[in-house]
Design a protein around this nucleic acid. Structure first.
Lengths: 140, 140
DNA sequence: CTAGGGGTTTGAGCGCACTCTAAGTCAAGG
DNA sequence: CCTTGACTTAGAGTGCGCTCAAACCCCTAG
């Protein structure tokens, strides 16, 4: 698979894929006869995991550390586990903050909705008054 | 309250508070006799809300838009409500992604934990074998 | 009177994560 | 053969959100 297809399948741009390779997040890609990057499906799994880390706010520096540990082989498993556990804790905290903020947002939106309802009611009263005046006018 | 106290009470730096004022996120502060910024408690509520927006990932540009609408008075209520509703939807989506990623993280960590258990068991078996050998050696 | 510890301004600098540019190579189709 | 278009590189540029530097002002305590 060439870089443009990998880009399409991962949602990353070709630029970003090269950038990730350059900084060490992705392994150096194999090249075809023409010297162009030629990817194996396997890379999709790794990129998928990187995207999870990114989604959860892990800085590239730390992904890089993870990638380096991974490249060093099985004996770095415990370090990688600890890194992920620390990260998970941060994500949980962030999640809790988000949920709290979402409640605040709900409340705030509600106050706007209530304010709009009141305005709506005022309009209605005005409308009713107009109708009454109109009715009176019609009667006279 | 002077800027350093406001900084302490909001968790923002004095630098950041001045920056927020400069770009329009905070109203121009009143000054005391010596020309120094002198804040009223009321600012804490606004900063608190800004921090919620920030926590939930709203870009400064958009907070700025919200702040400008707010400064224009009550009649911008509906626009502000819509802005917050759109933002809330994005936050909910992000929250869902985070939760999904958290599950992936859990699974990944589990595989490391399992791998370590196996290593541990190997050690144990080795240990047992050693003991057995030791026992045999002791018997002989 | 002076030193210290606030505060003030304008504008430059920084870290992050891309994103793009320029100049070049290569393979396939007309 | 020539054009087209996807690829290559090194390195510059971008947008965001701060963060800091330099030079200055002002109040208070010793």
């Amino acid at each position: 698979m060439k870089i443009s297809e990998l880009a399409k399948r991962t949602g990353l741009s070709a630029h970003t894929i090269r950038y990730y390779e350059r900084i060490g997040l992705l392994p150096f890609a194999d090249r075809d006869a023409g010297g162009q990057r030629d990817y194996d499906e396997a890379i999709l799994v790794w990129i998928g995991f990187l995207k999870r880390l990114k989604t959860t706010g892990m800085p590239i520096r730390e992904m890089l550390l993870y990638a380096e540990l991974r490249a060093q082989g099985d004996q770095t498993g415990p370090q990688r586990r600890k890194l992920l556990e620390l990260h998970r804790e941060r994500v949980r905290e962030h999640l809790a903050e988000l949920e709290a903020s979402l409640l605040v947002l709900d409340t705030k939106i509600d106050t706007y909705v209530e304010a709009e309802k009141r305005t709506q009611n005022h309009d209605n009263s005005t409308q009713i008054r107009r109708n009454q005046i109109g009715a009176r006018a019609a009667r006279s």
